[in-house]
Design a protein around this nucleic acid. Sequence first.
DNA 1: ATTAAAATGCACTTCTGTTGCACGGCTTTT
DNA 2: AAAAGCCGTGCAACAGAAGTGCATTTTAAT
Lengths: 138, 138
Amino acid sequence: MKEIESTLQNKGIRPTAMRMLIYKFMAEKNSAQGLSDLELAFTKADRTTVYRTLKTFEEKGVVHQIDDGTGVLKYALCEPGCRCDIERDLHLHFHCNACDKTICLTEHKIPHINLPDGFIAEDANLVVKGICDSCSTY
Amino acid sequence: MKEIESTLQNKGIRPTAMRMLIYKFMAEKNSAQGLSDLELAFTKADRTTVYRTLKTFEEKGVVHQIDDGTGVLKYALCEPGCRCDIERDLHLHFHCNACDKTICLTEHKIPHINLPDGFIAEDANLVVKGICDSCSTY
DNA sequence: ATTAAAATGCACTTCTGTTGCACGGCTTTT
DNA sequence: AAAAGCCGTGCAACAGAAGTGCATTTTAAT
């Protein structure tokens, strides 16, 4: 818990109890979490607080937003070395159609794409859908 | 207009006036359209009608849905030869941060991705964001 | 301890997508 | 031609998620 506190401080975030709990919760999950997931996990807290906490985390490069195509935005902790606050880390995301979880495949970077003349790429988002390793081993 | 009529019929869609107008509208655009875009273009018609028309088009493989990360679903006509109704056409989509348009780069297929053991890919979505050719030529 | 700033909670709004129901026209059947 | 039924359309209302304004509490600094 002390580690979390210093982690947040290093990122320029005041480590309140709420923020540390949310950070801890997300660190324990191996899949990306939606606002409603956190809402359910922290019924004592208000939706807005969770919402703004995520926004703060995102601004400071603690989490990154994932649009996995389900219609709800997900959030996942950034990898230790990532400079999400400066430049997007272009790893791909995997959404399992069975368990409905979305996970970061941080080792798998989005390949370079050749665009037609005149097109300038600034960012990219790749989501692969299918069956994850947990669900495929039955 | 006669062409549109037979196109729809070939896809198993009854060619009503509304449907032909919507098809025509989308065919004239080179960018993907959201529900609200069509809503604005057809103020005489009801939102629900446009919505259900798109759903019908999608089911029958006339249009495909695009999640470009803006939070609103877009639709674009499928290419002549595409078998969207059977198997997804994995071309990539480009979203322009300047003009906010989303277009299909049908020539650019999503490259094959090597996934970790146990992961099975069924579908993929790749959206590149940046500046489109129209906006970059100033 | 006092004060200022930041975080939290409550209520409300907006936007998008979606569904239920009723009306009306077109098609089909007799 | 009349009757029956299907299908498209429109109206209304709902649901879920994201976002905002303001009052209150908590935290940090002096």
